[in-house]
Computed example of a mutant assay.
Amino acid sequence: MSKHFEDARYYLGRAAEHAKAGVKEELEPVEARVKDLVGIVDDGEPEPSRLDRLQADLKKLEERAEGEAREAVAAARERIVEYRGRNVAKAE
């Protein structure tokens, strides 16, 4: 390859690097505004959306209802065992 083409290729690469850095520098304020609008905090994690919060609340309610249901079933089983025990004692 001709020395002129090698030089041109080198300078085009440098120009592309400088253009990339310039665009990045120019867009930093825009990026910051977009992050503020979207709700991305400094650590890079977005704040939970309303939907995420509702899903978390529903999950907690589901777990609570499941626990209460298990307790109710256990209590019912105990009453059934107690009832059957009384009937067996009466029959004898």
Rank of each mutant, 00 (worst) to 15 (best):
A69L: 15
R77I: 11
K60S: 00
K35V: 05
V34H: 09
L27T: 10
Y11S: 12
E17T: 14
R14V: 13
P48R: 08
R14W: 07
M1N: 07
G85D: 12
A89Y: 04
R77Q: 14
D7P: 00
R64A: 15
R53T: 06
A89M: 02
Y10N: 15
V81K: 13
K20D: 12
E6Q: 07
L61R: 15
K90E: 14
D57I: 00
N87T: 09
I40F: 09
G67F: 03
A65L: 13
R77N: 11
M1K: 06
V41K: 15
V34W: 15
K59G: 06
K60R: 11
R14F: 03
Y10I: 11
R70E: 12
Q55A: 13
L58P: 03
A19V: 00
A19H: 10
R9P: 00
D52C: 07
D52A: 13
H4D: 11
R86V: 02
H18N: 01
V41G: 09
P48Y: 11
I80V: 09
L51I: 13
S49Q: 04
L54N: 09
G13Q: 14
A32L: 14
K90P: 00
N87V: 03
G67W: 09
A75G: 03
E45S: 14
K3M: 11
D36Q: 13
L61Q: 14
A72P: 05
V23E: 14
A89E: 03
K24V: 08
A8R: 07
A65M: 12
R50Y: 06
E6S: 02
A32D: 07
R77D: 08
A19E: 14
K60E: 08
V23R: 15
I80E: 11
K24A: 15
R33C: 05
K59Q: 11
A72T: 01
A72I: 01
E82T: 12
K24Y: 04
V81C: 03
A16G: 00
Y83R: 07
R77H: 09
Q55E: 10
V81N: 01
K35N: 13
A21W: 02
S2N: 13
A8H: 05
G39Y: 03
A16E: 12
F5Y: 05
K3D: 07
A75N: 14
L37S: 08
A65Q: 13
I40R: 10
P46K: 11
Y83I: 05
A91G: 00
G44R: 11
A65F: 12
A21C: 01
R50L: 08
D43K: 06
A72R: 09
E45G: 03
L61I: 07
A75L: 03
E17D: 15
R50W: 05
R9V: 10
G85Q: 03
